[in-house]
Structure formats: structure tokens, C-alpha cells
Simulated assay, not measured.
Amino acid sequence: MNYGAINIDPETMGGTPVFTGTRVPIQALFDYIETGETLDEFLENFPSVKKEFALQVLKMASKTLTTEKSLYENFA
């Protein structure tokens, strides 16, 4: 399944969500942010990830975590 910036395919990394067109797990972006690194540092270390895709993923996360309905459906 392709969700724009995110691709989920059992044949790629066992179905782990990755950035479209890469084998870079989405989780890697959040790991970088969690440790205080910047988006630019992430992109420098993963040059196959398009900046627009990284920004789309962050926007998707923001929408998921700032909407009560989405929070209830996903985390309640």
C-alpha cells in the first residue's frame, strides 16, 4: 500500500512502513527527532529520502496527534 510519502509492502523490509522509493523506515525519522537531531541531519544521513516526504510524514503525524477523533480511534 502506498500512502504518498509512506510505502508498506510485505516484500520491502517485511512490511515495515518506509519512505516511498527507499528502504528507510519511517521510524528512523522519529528516532532522530527523539534524540534531538534535526530534520536536516536526518536528510543528510539518509540522502535517498526526499525532504518533501519527510515533511509529509511529520504533517501526517501532527494531524493524527492533534485531532481528538483520531486519537480516540487510534489510541483509546
Score class of each variant (00 low, 15 high):
59 K>V: 12
31 D>Q: 10
28 A>C: 11
55 L>T: 11
10 P>K: 12
61 A>N: 08
60 M>E: 08
75 F>H: 12
38 T>K: 12
60 M>K: 09
59 K>H: 14
19 F>R: 01
30 F>L: 04
24 V>I: 10
62 S>M: 11
67 T>K: 14
73 E>P: 00
13 M>G: 01
27 Q>D: 15
63 K>P: 06
14 G>L: 14
32 Y>N: 00
11 E>Q: 10
36 G>N: 05
53 F>A: 00
19 F>M: 09
17 P>A: 02
69 K>S: 15
34 E>Q: 13
12 T>V: 14
45 N>F: 09
48 S>E: 15
41 E>V: 05
9 D>K: 10
19 F>Y: 06
35 T>F: 08
76 A>T: 10
59 K>Y: 13
17 P>N: 06
58 L>W: 06
47 P>N: 05
14 G>Y: 13
68 E>V: 14
57 V>G: 00
16 T>P: 00
26 I>V: 15
71 L>Q: 11
56 Q>A: 15
35 T>P: 02
23 R>K: 11
57 V>M: 04
33 I>N: 03
51 K>W: 09
34 E>L: 12
75 F>R: 10
22 T>W: 06
30 F>I: 03
36 G>S: 10
29 L>S: 01
33 I>V: 11
58 L>A: 04
23 R>M: 09
41 E>R: 13
58 L>P: 00
1 M>I: 07
31 D>R: 12
49 V>A: 02
40 D>G: 04
37 E>Q: 15
25 P>C: 04
11 E>Y: 07
58 L>H: 05
28 A>K: 09
24 V>M: 01
49 V>Y: 01
59 K>N: 09
21 G>K: 02
72 Y>G: 08
7 N>K: 11
44 E>I: 04
2 N>G: 09
38 T>E: 04
61 A>E: 10
29 L>I: 03
2 N>S: 13
18 V>K: 07
3 Y>I: 11
31 D>G: 07
29 L>P: 01
20 T>D: 09
35 T>W: 09
71 L>G: 00
22 T>D: 06
28 A>F: 08
50 K>D: 13
37 E>P: 07
5 A>G: 03
59 K>I: 07
67 T>Q: 14
68 E>N: 14
75 F>M: 12
54 A>M: 00
8 I>K: 07
56 Q>R: 14
60 M>H: 08
62 S>H: 15
34 E>F: 13
12 T>G: 04
30 F>Y: 08
68 E>A: 14
70 S>C: 14
69 K>C: 04
44 E>W: 06
39 L>S: 02
19 F>S: 01
17 P>T: 03
36 G>W: 06
52 E>F: 07
55 L>F: 10
63 K>F: 14
54 A>C: 07
64 T>C: 13
38 T>N: 08
56 Q>T: 12
50 K>Y: 09
23 R>V: 08
23 R>D: 06
48 S>L: 13
3 Y>V: 06
40 D>V: 03
4 G>M: 06
60 M>L: 10
75 F>Q: 11
